[in-house]
Amino acid sequence: MSDKTVLTDGENSRSSSSPAAPAELDGGWKQLARRFFRHRLAGAGLILFALLALMALFAPLIAPFDPYAIGRSYQPPSWTGGHLLGTDQSGRDVLSRLIYASRVSLSVGVGAVAIYVAIGTLVGAVAGYFGGWIDSLAMRATDVFMSFPYLMVILVMVSVLGPSLGNIILALGLLGWPSVARLIRGGVLSVKEKEYVKAGIALGYSTPRLLFLHILPNVLAPVLVNATFGIAVAIITEASLSFLGMGVQPPTASWGNMLIEAQSFSTLSGRPWLWVPPSCMIIIAVISINFMGDGLRDVMDPKGRR
């Protein structure tokens, strides 16, 4: 014990360039976060999305009017008349409806993605780790799911279950998992052969512990990217469904069903305040999320690391 070999700082560790930069040491996720914010588009996307989320969260405080209160219809936008974005055919304030609609769109996006990432991760991880017939079964199931005409199946599901917000989230969530399952499966297939997994077995860790606490964190990065794009897709799908009349039912506002109410020719040509704002909101939401996804992908690509 007396000749204990204690190493000094400098000689054996490649990190710790200077004690002045302790953040440098934390590596991993913190480093990712820093690189993410340095990526300009990603930062902008995150800020935009955060604003949208705040708007949805505090809708009752921000909205100037009750979104269901009926007044004089088709008032054009004005700074002085109180209705910043005018009113619709029932005389409801467009701005307030727009703000409340963000709740629907964001919860569809986040809810559906949360459901299908959870399902896909579980299926993919189990299929990849155990292989054999479990794997074949899971992969054939993804083949079947992926060969469905997406929008049609959702339309059928929603019309059978009834068109409500919860059912739309459920339908989107139940249909989206195959792509996540495949991503996770591929990752698990390669990571499970790594020596640290063998080391984990040699340390006496149980299979679920190894699979979910040791292997999964190594394969989540591409899924995170996939999930951000998934949110955008879900928002658009909800808008499409609402546009087709199978989405969120009036009088609840969603960006999609605000568009459907503006379908008439006279509205399209003469009252742009009814369809331009919801379209813009959809575009902003989708773009901000896509930017975030792009940024995440760049940041997580090991070749892109500087």
Binding site: G28, K194, E195, Y196, K198, A199, G200, H214, P217, N218
Partner: peptide, 10 residues
């Protein structure tokens, strides 16, 4: 190989 025997994300 100690480099590959420890989990890189933990």
């Amino acid at each position: 190989e100690p480099m590959s025997a420890l989990n890189p994300v933990l």
